[in-house]
Design a protein around this nucleic acid. Sequence first.
RNA 1: CGGGAUGUGGCUCAGCUUGGUAGAGCGCCUGGUUCGGGACUAGGAGGCCGCAGGUUCAAAUCCUGUCAUCCCGACCA
Length: 565
Amino acid sequence: MKSSELFYPTLREVPSEAEIISHQLLLRAGFIRKTSGGVYTYLPLGYRVIRKIENIVREEMDRAGGQEVLMPIVQPAELWQKSGRWEVYGEEMFRLQDRHKRHFALGPTHEEIITTLVDSDIHSYRDLPLLLYQIQNKYRDEIRPRFGLMRGREFIMKDLYSFDIDDEGLDKSYHKMYYAYKQIFQRLGLRYRVVEADSGAIGGNESHEFMVLAETGESEIVYCDSCDYAANVEKAVCIAGEAAEAAPLAIEKVHTPGQRTIQDIADFLHIPASEQVKTLMYTADGELVAALIRGDRELNEIKLKNALECNELLMADEASVKKLSGAGFGSLGPVGMNVKIYADLEIAAMHNFACGANEDDYHFKNVNMGRDFVPEAILDLRNAVAGDPCPVCAGKLNTVRGIEVGHIFKLGIKYSDAMEATFLDPNGQARPFVMGCYGIGISRTMAAAVEQNYDENGIIWPMAIAPYQVIVVPVNSKNKEQMQAAQSIYQLLREDGLEVLIDDRDERAGVKFKDADLIGIPVRVTIGPKALQENKAEVKKRWEKEAELTDIDLVPEKVLKIIRG
RNA sequence: CGGGAUGUGGCUCAGCUUGGUAGAGCGCCUGGUUCGGGACUAGGAGGCCGCAGGUUCAAAUCCUGUCAUCCCGACCA
């Protein structure tokens, strides 16, 4: 492809609407343009990347036994009413009516359609398992689309649905997908982690998220440095640490006028946050409860909520707390507190700690659990942090940030049951399909790849998804010799089956280099005047600083080696 | 939806406080000089100042409404 003919409008300046790096670079490099909030047009370069990602996904799905279908975007309301999700999905679903006033939705997902399809055409256990997938636009009327392709209202997604006879079959399908996903992210050339995910609401018992690691990722992940345990911070399990030995000292009440926060007390009493206890008051289904956590930790409300098995968990308001305990938020403590107290695991290992005295402007020193108060239960209530012990092995946890690009989970019979989708088992009994569902955000993966691979000059595409693998740059397009040499290399590379761009534009060298870097082509072959006289050209890898001088005749071989390894 | 901000040539922004009918840089077109990391120079095209009302002799500027975009929170591939 000639650069002069390629539609890739690059921007020198950062469009003001773009906040995160992938959004900025994809706009600047001419890969995407916004059509409306959360809705994008893919320009030629962008669409090439999308197709490459799709194809890798497609190949691995096929290899795992998946069969590709294409389902409608416009979906009739009846299907959604049948599953009960017409109401549940709420505002997030794009809805429309046809001329006869029939109701439709733009598909946010395809469980309803696929379940209906399989139900109507699969009747026997002999036809199972069945793995069907599609790569399609999906629609979610997000409250707030943001971050460019990261959270769009229209986005491209691959989803595969598995249909099995029983849980054992589902396990097999699930593991096939798990393996296929690992293959996919490996092939895409992205650094990623698989993390255990919460499948609570969906009802399954196993779920994993595939996270592309990037500084700018929206979720924080903890992972073990010596085994393969990894989880979202809010899902990571904390285990009890070693309890240090210390003789309990006599409890002491101290006057702490105006000292309300952990930091205040740390400064005022010279007691580090890690030797204080924070008392947080919640209303759990209407009942006031206290949660205790080490002063320097964060409470994890999801863990608390799960532990209490309540439906509604809210921070308590200060007025009712004061009424009950006698003190405002700044001076709360477990001693003498007349509500159920839930202590974090770490509290049990603490001795002689400081906390509020349930009297404004007073705190206690040398408080000890057991002696001075007794909790209702000792639970895992805090967020994991770097340095925590691994819950699985003896290793230590580290944290990284990641972008969720894939999510697999077992659905069980949730949809097939609701939609009365059944098959006949060997005994002639009707049974609901046991389902699994497996998604990959294709467009989000493109953004994630950029978040993970860029420098100050632009994108650095992983080879497998680069829109073109090589760009040939004659420094001066008006120079006949340079153009000829460039064109001949261009031809040879193409004959080798590579995807090649040649920058034949009548631009200054600087402009060509800047654009080549910006759009992130992995390999650049530069034909310059001096080198050409010695029958040489430069080969430069996008991710390295220096170029290498090579005999022109050897360029194709060298480039091929870089690309094919 | 709650909180915050912004809408002015293709892009980035100034002008708005103190109304008098629109500017800069980049990009684009033409000529000349240049030609290895976003050149220089001369000329040129391009904007009903988001939209709708209102105040005023007069509105980009003041007022009201509305739409859009972006950021922070709850949701998710």
